[in-house]
Design a protein around this nucleic acid. Structure first.
Lengths: 229, 229
DNA sequence: CGCGGTGTTGAGTGGAGTCAAACTGCGTGG
DNA sequence: CCACGCAGTTTGACTCCACTCAACACCGCG
């Protein structure tokens, strides 16, 4: 990959402006660019955190098996570092991560991050803000999940996917295509019930389905279902 | 309150060691000590964040009404700042807070915090670690809540209360005494089901109840129920 | 003594999980 | 090219967990 593109992506990153020339050079030198095919493991639950990962292009799923085989699944946000929290706690990954589609990532070794954090208060402040927002999102989601029932939870998930990955050119079809299983894990449902509920939504003219492609026909109605519970 | 005791509590706080003499003086000067009776509102949902609060003694409940009148309830941890996250996000309280029992707090104006964060990388690092741990706890709890059923959730809550506030002198009775209603909110249950499940636990010789006093008779069994789901 | 808030328990209902059967699309190999 | 098998999806029937509603008991308080 040409050097120019790397710089472009780094410049888009909000941290970039806070860095000194020396710090930028340090990152440019240590940065590893990786292009991965779909369904490739990036790291495993329990391993030490060696890099921070920035999702440039594609989709990464962060997950763990829970009680009774129920998976817990999160999706990484394009343009952001994902799953940075364990670096700041015990230094071990509590989840595994793998690519869902063809994906490009930047890897930065933690030692470099460490040195920069030590030097640069602004970057520290940025991390604080980022983590605070993560707490906030976690909390809101947790509250939402617990007090909504299936329809509301699935609606919330669909809106979340739209926010994260956006739509195809038609402006209605979700760009990301998940299996029913992953939709179920994210929404804390069973695959059966995801299927049932999606069917219900289509017969209510809220969605239209074509295999894994989901088209949102009536956005306001979907938001209504999500808000209502 | 005598100055000596204040110093003692501040010295126990992990941040204290990271501060310069000047910064310590700044805090000592701005610090407000407050003793509040039970059931006193500290701040309301939506208000601007003006202080960071350190819970010295007693119990503080942080809460919000959710969809359909279901409350969401958290408890503050003695010896720690509580609910600091909104200061780092939008600067408004997403929840209300009130004392549950007779309580003593320290209030530090946010401007003072701001100035110190700007000067002191170590304190920044401390905040990062604190927030990272908060994300972690939130996440684990969210996962646990969703995949456990009632018995497991209530067991988890009881263990959580034990961890937070400890036991009375007998070593078995939980020091904190919550209403069935608050137990329900924390565990995402209805008061009816809290009552039922507590009864079930006593008839299984896991707990013994006397009004609001809860005595844990068989800790390992309770942990087993919590872990199992 | 009566009242209100809180806790307990029961009966009935409905939402969500489980299990299983049919159907689909897809890749593989004969 | 077709046959086969597999994995994922859809749908139905059944079961069970948890919520609702209501009646009753309990304690504290005026």
């Amino acid at each position: 990959m040409p050097k120019r593109d790397q710089d472009a992506h780094m410049r888009n990153n909000p941290i970039y402006d806070m860095l000194t020339e020396g710090q930028r050079a340090m990152i440019a030198h240590a940065l590893v660019v990786e292009k991965l095919p779909r369904r490739t493991r990036i790291y495993n639950e329990g391993e030490r955190v060696e890099y921070l990962y920035l999702l440039v292009e594609g989709c990464v799923k962060v997950f763990r098996k829970g009680i009774g085989g129920n998976d817990y699944v999160q999706l990484a946000m394009p343009g952001h570092f994902f799953n940075i929290r364990p670096y700041f706690t015990d230094g071990r990954h509590p989840f595994s991560a793998e690519t869902y589609s063809e994906t490009e990532l930047y890897k930065i070794p933690v030692e470099v991050i460490e040195r920069i954090l030590h030097q640069n208060v602004q970057v520290c402040r940025y991390c604080i803000a980022a983590l605070a927002q993560e707490v906030s999102k976690q909390e809101e989601r947790s509250i939402g999940l617990m007090q909504k029932q299936m329809r509301g939870r699935l609606a919330e998930t669909l809106l979340y996917l739209a926010e994260l990955y956006g739509y195809e050119e038609d402006g209605y079809t979700l760009r990301i295509q998940l299996s029913r299983n992953d939709l179920a894990s994210i929404s804390y449902m069973t695959p059966s019930n995801v299927s049932r509920t999606l069917s219900a939504f289509t017969s209510e003219r809220i969605l239209s389905l074509e295999r894994k492609k989901i088209k949102i026909m009536n956005l306001s109605q979907l938001e209504h279902i999500s808000d209502l519970g």
